[in-house]
Amino acid sequence: MKYIFKILRYDPEKDEKPHFQEFIHEPCPADTVMEAMKDIRDQQDPTLSFRYSCREAICGSCAVVINGHTTLACLQSVAALGTTEIVIEPLPNLEIQKDLYVDMDPFWEALEKIEPYIHNEGEVPENGHEIDEAEMDKIYQFISCILCACCYSACPVASRDGRYLGPAALAKLYRLVQDPRDQRDYTSWRQVNAEDGVWGCDTVFKCNDVCPKEVRPADGILALRRKIFVSELKHIFKRKP
């Protein structure tokens, strides 16, 4: 079956603004949108530029908007879209660089702000750490995050406030502070007790909806709010004479 692929194109050296280009292409029945885009590039237009790597929804390279829905191009089957007209656009909330390439720097910068690594200063235990499977289960869904930025792009708060840390970074923080190996003190992550941190979330759960890995970043944000509430209470009690 022939499909029309309307792909947003932008050549920063020539175009004043992005525009759609149409390609007629007949994908194999089981093809994903990414496979179709690769074939279009290989057969029709080698100048078409987009990020890709693993083609199996684990590397997080190829997040785009397909017929209005934010997802990974490699995860979206062409046939499952139920239409022969397929519109492909770059991620919103991030500046277009060329075609479907967006500037990911704001996303990575937000991540770095939460100090996204285990805080533990001690030596490596000789026979490893002792950790319950139940402890791992608690953070399990957040570990599935591949940092593809689907949630960041779909988040209405990140869209209107560039300072907001965004769902992926906050969910990562929750995953880390819940880890029994992490020894960070509340004072070191108290900065997220702010409007550009956990209180920025509108709780409209767009992040949960679009996550291609079935992570629910908003769960992490809400859990952080509860943790902060408890920690602040402790803080207040400590300050009493």
């Binding site: 285990i118 490596v124 490893g128 950790i131 399990y140």
Partner: peptide
């Protein structure tokens, strides 16, 4: 073995066995 324990210490969330050790 020491490489695994080092990875674990860095934060790798290995699956666990009931004895709280790496599966």
């Amino acid at each position: 073995a020491s490489a695994i324990y080092e990875l674990e210490h860095m934060g790798v969330p290995f699956s666990r066995f009931p004895g709280r050790v790496i599966a």
